[in-house]
Amino acid sequence: MQHLSFIQINESSLLISFGELIHEYVHARVMQAKAAIEANPFPGFVETVPAYTSLAVYYNPVLVEKKNESVSVTVLQSVQHLLETVAADQLTSSGALVEIPVCYDPVFAPDLITTADALKLSVEELINIHAAKTYKVFMIGFTPGFPYMGTVDERIFTQRKTQPRLRVEPGSVAVAGNQTGIYPFATPGGWNIIGRTPLLLFDRHRSNPFLLKAGDEVKFKPISKEEFETLSMVHTKQS
C-alpha cells in the first residue's frame, strides 16, 4: 500500500489517511487495511473504524509492548510494517450484499416530488435511477447504524435541504450530494427523503444489532405500500 499518511490522534488511536478522493477504489484500500490489521493484531489492539478515505486504529496503550521511545511510535511502526509487507491481493474484506425493500410512495417520501422536480425528472425516473445501482456502504456514522452509501447516479445528485426536519421517521431512505442513506432512528435530518424501508437497521434482539456495516453493498428493491405494511408488521413482531 502506497501514499498513506499516519496521524496520531491521541495516546490510544492512530489515523491512517488514504488521501481525499472519495471513490470505491480508495475505500476498497481502506477495507483491505482494516482486514489486514484485524487478521494480524498487535498486542493492545482494540478495533478499527473505517471512513470514506481513512481508517482509525484504536488500541489500549497499557497492553502495547513498547519497542521504541513511546507506545504511539511502536504502534505506528507496527502498522506501517504490516501494511508494507502484506500484499494487496492477500487483503480481503467480508462485505455482504444486502437487498433492502423500499416503498417510494409519497406517503413515505415527503421529498420525492420536489426532488424529482428540482432534478427535472419524473417521479418514476427518480425511483428507477435510485433503485438501479448497487451501493457501497462507505461508513457508519451520524447516528448509530446510519449508512453513508454511494455513489448515486450523477443524474440524482442533489443538495441537502436548506431547512432540516426536526424529525425524520426511522427507515427513511434519503439522498444528498452524491450519497444515499437510511435513517435508523427518529432524528433530525437534512437529507431529501424519497422512500422508506420496513426493515429495522438497528434491532437489539439480533446477535449483531446493526443490519449494515462498512464494506457491505446495498441493492434497493421497490415495493408497494401494501407490501411495506405487510413487511413492517412482520419485522415489528420479530423485534
Rank of each mutant, 00 (worst) to 15 (best):
S5F: 13
E11N: 15
I16K: 00
G19C: 10
I22T: 13
I22L: 09
Y25W: 03
Q32L: 06
A33W: 03
E38A: 11
E38S: 14
A39I: 13
V46A: 04
Y52W: 06
A56K: 13
N60R: 11
N60A: 14
K66T: 15
E69G: 14
E69Q: 12
T74S: 12
V75G: 02
L76C: 03
H81I: 02
Q90T: 07
S94F: 08
G95E: 00
L97D: 06
E99C: 13
Y104H: 09
D105K: 02
V107C: 12
P110F: 01
T115M: 10
T115H: 08
A116P: 11
A118P: 01
L119W: 05
N128M: 12
H130P: 14
T134N: 09
T134S: 10
T134L: 02
Y135E: 04
F138V: 11
M139T: 13
P144M: 03
G145P: 07
M149D: 00
G150L: 02
T151E: 13
V152A: 06
E154V: 13
T158N: 08
R160E: 04
P164I: 06
L166N: 13
R167M: 12
G171Y: 00
G171K: 05
V175S: 02
G177R: 04
I182E: 01
P184L: 01
A186V: 05
G189V: 03
N192G: 10
P198S: 10
F202V: 15
R206K: 14
P209R: 08
G215D: 03
F220A: 10
K221T: 13
K221W: 00
S232Y: 12
